[in-house]
């Protein structure tokens, strides 16, 4: 499904114009982050190198590379998905472990506790449900797909 979803065949058309890296502000600040190089590694099958690299976690998902790619490669989404693949192969950043816990419980990225709802009440806003069990179910049924 991933190959289909992200049209990874398209990735093989990449002729390394480097527009993704030229236009990347993260690359400007940190030269080691080179989207075109990551794409090249993926397309030649050296995906392991990509998954182990800290680089994939530097992408801000700003979509500029996807916008400008002359081959219509969804660069952002492909790099984004590399994170998911990294996670599955055991390279899990700490933040993600925490986010996942919160998501499973609260159904949202930030947990909402009584204090938050009290604060909201004071500001004249309605309370937010503190739990959202459906998220655990979504993970359970969807994550098995490959």
């Amino acid at each position: 499904m991933y190959n289909y979803l992200l049209d990874k065949e398209r990735l093989r058309y990449c002729y390394q114009c480097g527009k993704c890296s030229s236009g990347c502000d993260v690359n400007r600040l940190d030269g080691s982050f080179q989207p075109h190089r990551l794409l090249h590694l993926i397309s030649i099958g050296a995906i392991d190198k990509v998954l182990k690299s800290a680089d994939i976690w530097k992408c801000t998902t700003c979509f500029t590379c996807s916008e400008r790619c002359p081959q219509g490669i969804r660069v952002t989404d492909i790099l984004w998905n590399m994170r998911a693949m990294a996670v599955k192969s055991g390279h899990i950043p700490e933040l993600l472990v925490h986010q996942r816990e919160v998501l499973l419980k609260a159904g949202r990225l930030y947990s909402v506790g009584p204090i938050d709802n009290k604060k909201r009440g004071k500001a004249g806003l309605n309370a937010i449900p503190e739990e959202h069990p459906v998220i655990a179910k979504i993970f359970e049924i969807s994550e098995v797909e490959d």
């Binding site: 991933y2 984004w80 998905n81 998911a84 996670v87 996942r100 979504i138 994550e143």
Partner: peptide, 9 residues
């Protein structure tokens, strides 16, 4: 945030 965990999910 789930994009970084599992794209399909």
């Amino acid at each position: 945030p789930v994009r970084s965990m599992d794209f399909f999910t």
